[in-house]
Amino acid sequence: MILTTDPAVLVLEDGTRHTGRAYGARGTTLGEVVFATGMTGYQETLTDPSYAGQIVLQTAPHIGNTGMNGEDPESRRVWVAGYIVRDPSRVVSNWRAEESLDDALVRDGIVGISGIDTRAITRVLRSAGSLRGGIFSGEAAALDAGEQLRIVRDAPPMAGRNLSAQVSVDVASVTPAQGERLGNLAVLDLGVKQATIDNLAARGFEVHVLPQDVTIDDVRAIDPVAVFYSNGPGDPAASDRHVALLRAVLDAGLPFFGICFGNQLLGRALGFGTYKLPFGHRGINQPVLDKATGRVEITAHNHGFAVDAPLEGTVDSPNGYGRVEVSHIGLNDNVVEGLRALDIPAFSVQYHPEAAAGPHDANYLFDRFADLVKENRA
């Protein structure tokens, strides 16, 4: 692969500019600029739908040497709004590779930039928090600097955005259960990852992946033994319809498990608020305390919002679902990382227990969900 010398510029809403080389598709892209700390697994990051609307900066300096393959994608396409790397690999050297990362970005229309000081930008984001930004390449790189900044500042912030319809499937699909069959599981696709589906099927669920606009009648039609809300992008405060659906699920007594965005929506369904984090949690090395076991898990995250609930003790659900406790806490900043309802069969975590390509410390949560369904059936 021959690296391009075509110019590109990254413009942040604070007015800072970083000039580099075009990478991937040419054009203009806008989004919330965030950094991801994983040194491996960039294909899984790029194809994780929860990164929709975000321009992802890789803190690892050398990206692309293992190329892209047809076995590891977490969804049907690359979802990031844009991509920032320091040193893209000049060659693809993995035996499983089927195309280069650059070719995959071009195919899916992802505008990127390379050859800039990603460490300096990370330090800005670490201090200022996530910022709106834009990547301009091709003809757009020649736009007046003031015009580029205006375009960035006119872009919508992540707060208030509902992106579920952009990433969800249009038609329901079914993945057969493996081993002992537990029954039909309704999975609301808010940006679900393939590894999540695989983990649920491996626990005996017949996994029905449903579009994000289904009704409670649609859910009941598959005769589910439980309901699952996936990860996904956007602001949970802008997802009233999904919260209403979840309340109908809880009212019906169906066991529930939610991850990431699903955790925030369970918090809202129980009656708690949500808020935007200044920095967010992203990457595959986030320490989380499981309060029930005292164990510290290293976990994979991508969230910019969190549930506002008391960290200690039990509280009554403001919406009348009985007692609730915070089950997991993020150790970097004491953010709510999990909820457990004590009087109804429902729990959630803020991170990604499927964690492809790792870590796998939290994979046991899928077993916990299967056990909950079995107990509820009994």
Rank of each mutant, 00 (worst) to 15 (best):
V9S: 11
D14C: 08
G15P: 10
G15E: 09
R17Y: 12
G20M: 07
Y23G: 03
A25H: 00
A25Y: 07
R26L: 15
G31N: 08
T40D: 14
L46R: 05
T47C: 09
S50W: 00
Y51N: 14
A60G: 09
G64Q: 02
T66N: 12
G67S: 06
M68F: 04
S75T: 03
W79P: 07
Y83Q: 07
R90Y: 08
R90A: 15
V92T: 15
R96I: 02
A97P: 15
G109R: 00
V111S: 00
V111A: 03
G115H: 06
G115K: 05
D117K: 06
I121Y: 02
L125G: 00
A128C: 06
G129S: 03
G129L: 10
S130V: 15
E139S: 08
E139V: 05
A141D: 08
A142H: 15
L143K: 14
D144M: 02
L149W: 09
R150G: 12
V152M: 07
D154W: 03
A159G: 06
L163E: 13
A165D: 10
Q166Y: 13
V174L: 15
N184M: 03
A186S: 03
D189H: 04
L190Q: 12
K193P: 00
I197E: 10
R203C: 13
F205G: 10
L210K: 04
D213F: 11
D213E: 12
V219C: 01
V219Y: 06
D223R: 14
P224W: 08
S230E: 10
G234H: 13
A237L: 13
R247M: 11
D251M: 09
F256E: 04
Q264S: 10
G267K: 02
R268G: 01
L270A: 00
T274N: 02
H281V: 05
R282D: 02
G283N: 02
Q286C: 12
Q286R: 13
A292D: 14
G294H: 01
G294P: 00
R295S: 04
E297K: 10
I298R: 11
T299C: 12
A300W: 08
N302M: 13
F305V: 04
A306Y: 11
D308H: 08
E312Q: 15
G313H: 01
T314N: 07
D316S: 13
S317M: 02
S317C: 03
G320S: 07
G322W: 04
G322C: 09
G322H: 06
V326P: 08
G330C: 04
L331E: 01
N334A: 08
N334C: 00
V336Q: 06
E337T: 05
D343E: 13
F347P: 06
Y351G: 00
H352L: 02
H352C: 05
P353H: 12
E354D: 10
A356N: 08
G358I: 11
A362R: 10
A362D: 07
D371G: 10
N376K: 09
